[in-house]
Nucleic acid binder design. Structure first.
Lengths: 206, 206, 206, 206
DNA sequence: GGCTAAACGAGACGGTACGTCTGGTCTTCAA
DNA sequence: TTGAAGACCAGACGTACCGTCTCGTTTAGCC
């Protein structure tokens, strides 16, 4: 049974103006210069209207993220049958975007938001495409045998995205070829570690 | 040629009080509640004394990081000859620490600091031990043939740390066994892709 | 009595609830803490219902004043034939009431309301009783010759009330005997100012 | 021995700017539209600088009052030997000022301030001149015998001022001649009450 | 030992933003 | 059609910090 109440209903126009102002200001100004007052001003809205519906600026950013207001990601990772080639093709433009001022500062802002608001972190990799797109391609690779069965597909996506975040946070610029090499190493084929003759599998002693 | 001038010299007591107050307050209050005024108050110091020597609260945190005021890391990753066992032994207590309230919020705070201050990001993985300790052990593994020659050792360390950061930011709690499995997959032996039919696949797990 | 016709009607209950909440809140909280929202809440009424019928909180207070919702004044000033004695008997309890917290703050509130709303000022002295009761007794005194003919009776009432207001606004407490003495001086008999022999009246030279 | 403290000293420029903005805004906008933010804006000052030194907007107005920032009162009531004539000469321009928009709203504002801040009420009549100037003239009248000995001089000044306040609060406009008549009645000679039959009643007007 | 100058503690200053509260208007729904 | 409920824009409240700028004191070389 739905709760019935008299009175006006939430304004869709205000919601839209607030979220779109939030997304624009986060990109333009960055997380630490993003303020509720600034959003209200830019959206032509009273502050109370924001506080009525969102608990913090982090919650606003999380909702923008879910709405896909930051990235226009490639709809899917291609599938030529060669996993690494497909990943490189998909990752390369992403890495170059993250080497632009806008891209860098957007990622910085989103990570900063994630440190304050659990909801942002929870959806970060998905908004980025890692959860859906990348994991789907990895699953396909498992199906064709390019990756071994039992591969922790979702975790792998997170690891690649985590490495990416760390690269952006810790360096001035992503070294694109080096990053692609890393992905190649992480996901590519690899011999059983130099001691193929050793009877016991070295990775699982007991 | 040193510049000679009269007058008092930088107070070591003030520097120590400031850095130790910074480290304590970051752990206790978190990055966003860490304020210059609060540090000055806690350190019994004038604000100007802070601004004279550090450019921002990020710079303060970066210096604390370099001084190793946050972590007491294991001096080295053990070397039993089995890479994955050594990594697990080293990582397990770290992961459990990051599942405590203190550990979680400390990592959140440091990541937040890194989004604002390049210096923090630059030294984050090193302070954590990933650069020195982990990479050293990986290098040893390359030398003994546990890892193939040409393994991007430093990048691998960053990838593991990046995955860790992402795990903390995006989930309520690190799933320790799953994370150890991921590391096993990332660094462990793996059959050459694209030849799933190869009869004598050396490390086919199932 | 049940309402037995379709369609709502101007609610007398709402009017009563609003005015009684206004009076109670003005006494309890004071003028500056009296808010339309608070009245609506206390009366169980929508804000618009108040704005529909009254222009401001001042108008509400003015109507409460006219309804006599603040004072329960002595019905009349006694008439023993001695004006000053009667005035003292009537004024004394009033002055003591104005020395209580409630009385003080009520007068403060009403004066504050009067500064914002002409209607409050216009009826303040009347609601207090000065216009009707006091002036009636003064008129009687003129009739008996206790006061000279031509005495500005209404103005005198206002002057006494004005002195009272000023006393409350400017001091922590009314000095009751001193105030009664003042009234005695203002209304009592007085010789023609030290020069009884002077033929021309000193007060009106031309 | 004065209290010594290091650090900067209170800014006289800020104090002056704040008080002068307060006085101007109170006159221009009125008490209820006077805001701390508006004062800070007009004075080119941070809000905290106001809150540091004054507890409320009432305290600001009280200090303006003490500084004589509202009235430019006649330095003294004239003394021609005829009390009522002197009072009329002094009061007439004051009454006309209080019949202007500015004068009316200034008095309204000051009375409103007095209802919230004891300090304003305490100095209101003095700033107006009633305490010093009027009382001085009344004292002189007692000395020359124009007023009887024992006349409550200070209280009389307050009564006149109170009547004035009440007149402004309760009417649209002061009736200047009627008010002067009232003052004439309050302070002028008057026959002894209770002896209306006395034949040689010295100052029987009609 | 006096002089000079920097570093220190303290904190006032002009500001920005916070999160809360109220004002007055406008919208929806129930009776 | 009235009235309750309450969302809306607007903006003031008092607080917390920002980064800069005095102050008066303390201390370290140099004459």
């Amino acid at each position: 049974m739905t709760e019935h109440r008299s009175g006006p209903v939430r304004s869709a126009a205000a919601r839209e103006a607030i979220l779109s102002a939030t997304a624009r200001l986060l990109v333009d100004e960055g997380w630490d210069r993003l303020t509720i007052e600034g959003i209200a001003r830019a959206a032509g809205v009273g502050k109370q209207t924001i506080y009525r519906w969102w608990a913090s600026k982090g919650a606003l950013v999380a909702e923008c993220l879910l709405d896909g207001r930051f990235f226009a990601v490639e709809p899917a990772v291609g599938d030529t049958g060669e996993l690494l080639r497909d990943l490189r093709d998909w990752l390369t433009p992403v890495l170059h975007f993250l080497n632009t001022t806008t891209g860098r500062s957007l990622l910085h802002s989103l990570v900063a938001a994630a440190t304050e608001e659990a909801g942002v972190g929870a959806h970060l990799s998905d908004a980025f495409g890692a959860d859906r797109l990348l994991a789907d391609r990895l699953r396909a690779a498992v199906a064709t045998g390019e990756l071994p069965p039992g591969t922790p597909v979702d975790q792998l996506g997170h690891a690649v995205f985590g490495a990416l975040i760390f690269e952006v946070l810790s360096k001035d610029e992503i070294d694109v070829p080096a990053f692609l090499d890393l992905v190649g190493f992480l996901l590519g084929p690899r011999p059983a570690a130099g001691e193929p003759e050793t009877p016991g599998s070295p990775a699982e002693p007991a």
